[in-house]
Design a binder for these strands. Structure first.
Lengths: 193, 193
DNA sequence: TAAGTCATGTAAAAAGTTACATGATTCT
DNA sequence: AGAATCATGTAACTTTTTACATGACTTA
């Protein structure tokens, strides 16, 4: 009757396998670049950490601070590392994508055309900005780490792989937004010339 | 104090704007290709349809059948169509991506290398199969509809746009899976020659 | 006769978001 | 003095998944 580890649990363990962190720090790390593929608010993180601790996958230590509020530093255990390790090669549940934007595209034929074009153009720009940020991370990583990024047993490789997925995803999404916006703006004529 | 329409509600309205359908048929339509970007089980669909009806966005009609169980046919109302129309151009909530596979990649540095390589190679093939299916849909649409796909006020254009997103998404994901698998198999040597 | 499809629902549990709650310190 | 950051939690609500429940007809 062993309690199962949630996906969020594995996400947290994945960060703690790199370094010990407080709940607050984990909440920040869950923003970027991990937050690109998994998100959680602190209200979900704190209880989850408590749960991981009862399962013996992490330990916590109270760090007293003078200038700031005290914090609890969480450290992954050997059992935690082993659980993470075996989970990492088990088949992943097929990722269901939920995109409100694509859903809107599915009903765009009913919509006001200029407004719809503006929406997709705006989304295109939003993702261009996001891509630029990811590309910045990539340049930093490639410069700072070099060949270390090719060592598949280093956490840097794993972070880099994740980042590459983010970059590819954004690139594709931008192109699609551009295509939709172009179509809505009448950029593609049926009878050219 | 008007009750809000959920995203699932809009997904269902988006299908009903094309044709009247029963809850059962909607559940099937939610599999593909709409299911590519939004999913729901029948246990969520039936109550949601009842809710849309109390909001006056759909009507239902009991269809008696001899060879099969009777069914309720749902039809979108003018109010439903109008709600869908205005929702389609409102800004979309930024789509949070939740991918267990990318999460596993983030911890792949701890994993057994051959097992990890097999996982990503398998995922690559799974998505290649998915892509082949989407490409098949695309060929059918392009052949069967031709220039109608360029008319942005036809539902065919909207379905086509959605499908294009699916195709782009799968292509990108395949390339990424291949890259990760290659790296794990040691395809990229640090010191060539 | 067993499995599969058609057809519609409810109940319980899990996962995730939003809001509530507190309080110190630092920066503007 | 007010806003922002650091820090940790709980409560209420919404959304989604899994399981329960039923029953006729069709195909292998």
């Amino acid at each position: 009757m062993e309690k199962p580890i949630t996906t969020l649990g594995y996400a947290l363990l994945g960060l703690l396998a790199r370094q010990s962190l407080s709940g607050y720090d984990l909440a920040r790390q869950m923003k970027a670049p991990v937050g690109f593929f998994w998100q959680a608010r602190h209200s979900q993180i704190y209880p989850e950490l408590a749960r991981l601790q009862t399962l013996g996958l992490v330990t916590s230590e109270l760090i007293e601070q003078q200038d700031r509020p005290d914090k609890k530093l969480y450290t992954i255990t050997e059992a935690g590392r082993e659980a993470l390790r075996s989970w990492a090669t088990e088949p992943a549940a097929p990722a269901p994508i939920r995109s409100e934007l694509v859903l809107k595209a599915h009903s765009v034929w009913l919509a006001d055309r200029p407004k719809a074009a503006a929406l997709f153009r705006e989304e295109q720009r939003r993702h261009e900005a996001q891509l630029a940020q990811y590309e910045g991370y990539r340049v930093d990583m490639e410069r700072g780490l070099g060949d270390a990024l090719r060592q598949v047993d280093s956490s840097h490789f794993a972070s880099y792989a994740t980042l590459r997925r983010g970059i590819g995803y954004e690139r594709e999404l931008i192109e699609w937004c551009r295509w939709v916006a172009d179509q809505l703006e009448g950029g593609a004529r049926e009878t050219p010339g």
